[in-house]
Design a protein around this nucleic acid. Structure first.
Length: 208
DNA sequence: AGCCAGGACTGAG
DNA sequence: CTCAGTCATGGC
């Protein structure tokens, strides 16, 4: 199935997904979620985010003001808490520097490289932040995208990140709303039917 | 019990 | 550049 057709099929079936999931509506919560969800179930990320909100620590400034040990306990449910607490502070500094010095680049790929230069930020995390926190037109490749690409789009799921990303972006045009919706729909499909072990009935129904 | 979850870093070859 | 080892929790 072509890249574009899968999008149409999923959108017709599910409708808009209203991503990224966010309780406070703050940009920083999206960035926090992007870091905490690295190789981690979203339900666990939600617990960590709820902990942070409960003690009113949901901003770059407040995260930087909290001792490492305390931050680690708050995000413990999300796993890898020692690393991730450091990553969150790394991102908090990044955001604070961008706002303080007014050097937020208008070039998306330049900004992407600046994100990638931070410890804890790989391609997927950088692109999730660009797309969902900053509304930049960048398509996100994750484990789900690779699985769906492999099973339903005839793509090589093991291909390099940037190669897969270019395939999707070349096929979809430059509308960031489409990138936003498509990735959210892929996640929805994988959670409900396109599971790692095997496809469920919905996959067979939609793609037979 | 073991597998899985919206990865990234490090060191080795 | 590719690959294994490492990091950790919670649901099923």
């Amino acid at each position: 199935m072509p890249v574009q057709k899968l999008y149409n099929t999923l959108f017709e079936h599910y409708g808009p997904q209203h991503w990224w999931p966010c309780q406070t509506g703050k940009r920083w919560e999206i960035i926090t979620g992007a870091v905490l969800t690295q190789n981690t179930a979203w339900t666990n990320v939600e617990k960590a985010i709820s902990n942070l909100i409960a003690v009113d620590i949901m901003s770059p400034e407040k995260v930087l003001a909290v001792p490492d040990s305390e931050l680690q306990e708050l995000i413990r449910p999300a796993g890898f808490f020692t690393q991730k607490s450091a990553y969150l502070k790394e991102m908090a500094q990044f955001i604070r520097e961008q706002e303080k010095h007014f050097i937020m680049s208008d070039d998306v790929w330049d900004l992407r490289n600046q994100l990638l230069a931070r410890k804890g930020v790989g391609r997927e995390t950088a692109d999730s932040i660009l797309l969902y926190a900053f509304d930049k037109p960048v398509f996100v490749i994750d484990a789900y995208t690779r699985r769906v690409g492999e099973r339903h789009l005839g793509l090589n799921g093991k291909a390099a990140y940037d190669v897969l990303q270019k395939i999707f972006m070349d096929a979809l045009g430059t509308d960031r709303k489409v990138y936003n919706e498509y990735h959210a729909l892929i996640v929805r499909l994988c959670k409900e039917s396109c599971k790692k072990s095997q496809c469920g009935t919905l996959c067979k129904e939609l793609f037979s």
